[in-house]
Design a protein around this nucleic acid. Structure first.
Lengths: 208, 208
DNA sequence: TTTACATTGTGATAACAAACACATAAATTA
DNA sequence: TAATTTATGTGTTTGTTATCACAATGTAAA
């Protein structure tokens, strides 16, 4: 292992390793080689070893990786040992789907607040969370600090909501609205955009 | 313009250009410079020009791009002049959200079939589509060929559903299940995976 | 008409990421 | 214990993508 800049692409693969390892741990497996992991994930074994080597020498030559140990290492690298508080803006279809997903596979991501602009749902309770009025986002006080905001509101409202979330102190945003957010560069943004993905998909489908 | 390999990253940016241009067309704008587009999208003007130059000389030096013309060019490049038929597997929360999204901003992506394994929803009608039994996916006949399959079923079923969709002739798949699909390489796959995205997001949030 | 300015298109360069080749080391077998 | 096999870790090479510098070209002003 050597001190050097870690490629962003490496970081993006770590969650894939993490999930796969988690499943194998549950299955009771003990040792894992990069070749075997490679077969599960369709990522070349040299790539996997290179990725892991940025963070340490986790394996044993001639043997492979101690599955449980490697799992814990990646968990630590990704900061998944602690849990993260999430606020959701917009609880129509997508918002609900997300709440369902995160509530179901309770994976360290806790929904601590949810907002909507529809008076018919404000005050109601979804997955144990009382839906607050979106207009109160600015003023509302949360018991715990919110780490991450998920935006599932109408595209035209996305930018304002994003700014409010940043004011509330979130460090990262996942944006399901097809809207470009103009945020301080220290805020990490993930754009989840089905229509864009379909756009490039059909480029490749059509060119065959 | 020169004949050469087009970077995948360029293709992935085209839908962003496309959507932004679409909005500006609606606003009645006529001419657009790469610098101006760059301000809307947060992508450097040289990057935009380089991307476009792979496909032709669409602009006029000293002037900029004819907005409407450029829009049509990108539409043509991405194969968005024609419409695309989509089948959805799984119409619980996420599936419904997708149907809503695609039905609402009818953007050339038409849902032509939907499937679910829950007997309570099979036969019901969502956004004008009668939900069919997922078990019938293999046998069912569609009036029109299905171009793209969207998987929104339980992770454990995703792989089998994907194979069925491929058998039915889809050329591309969007997979919302956190499951690696093992498909022939000529099938284009888009993985939409919130938990993975949250995984790398908190890496960067935590390291500050 | 000439000059100044705005803007595109592109070859060259730099930055980043993946793939490769192989040194290293543990386990197994003869 | 020597040879063989298995598997990791990493320096080097190759490939891909972004950035830069600037030539080419159009518009507007002097």
């Amino acid at each position: 292992m050597k001190e050097q800049k870690i490629p962003k692409e490496t970081i993006k693969r770590l969650p894939l390793y993490y999930r796969c390892l988690n499943r194998l741990v549950v299955l009771g497996k003990d040792t894992l080689s990069s070749t075997e992991l490679s077969e599960y994930l369709g990522i070349k074994p040299t790539q996997i070893r290179k990725d892991l080597s940025y963070f340490g020498d986790f394996g044993t030559r001639g043997v492979g990786y101690d599955l449980r140990k490697l799992f814990k290492e990646i968990e630590s690298i990704l900061n998944l040992e602690r849990s993260w508080n999430i606020a959701i803006a917009g609880v129509s279809n997508i918002g609900c789907a997300i709440m369902d997903l995160l509530d179901f596979n309770h994976s360290g991501f806790n929904i601590v607040a949810a907002f909507d602009s529809d008076n018919r749902v404000v005050g109601s309770n979804i997955y144990g969370i009382t839906i607050q009025d979106l207009d109160n986002l600015k003023e509302c006080t949360a018991d715990e600090p919110i780490d991450i905001g998920i935006i599932a509101v109408d595209p035209v409202d996305a930018r304002e909501v994003a700014n409010c979330l940043v004011d509330k102190g979130v460090k990262g945003i996942v944006n399901f609205a097809p809207t470009l957010l103009n945020l301080p560069k220290e805020i990490e943004v993930v754009q989840m955009d089905l229509t864009s993905e379909l756009g490039w998909l059909v480029f490749y489908i059509g060119h065959r």
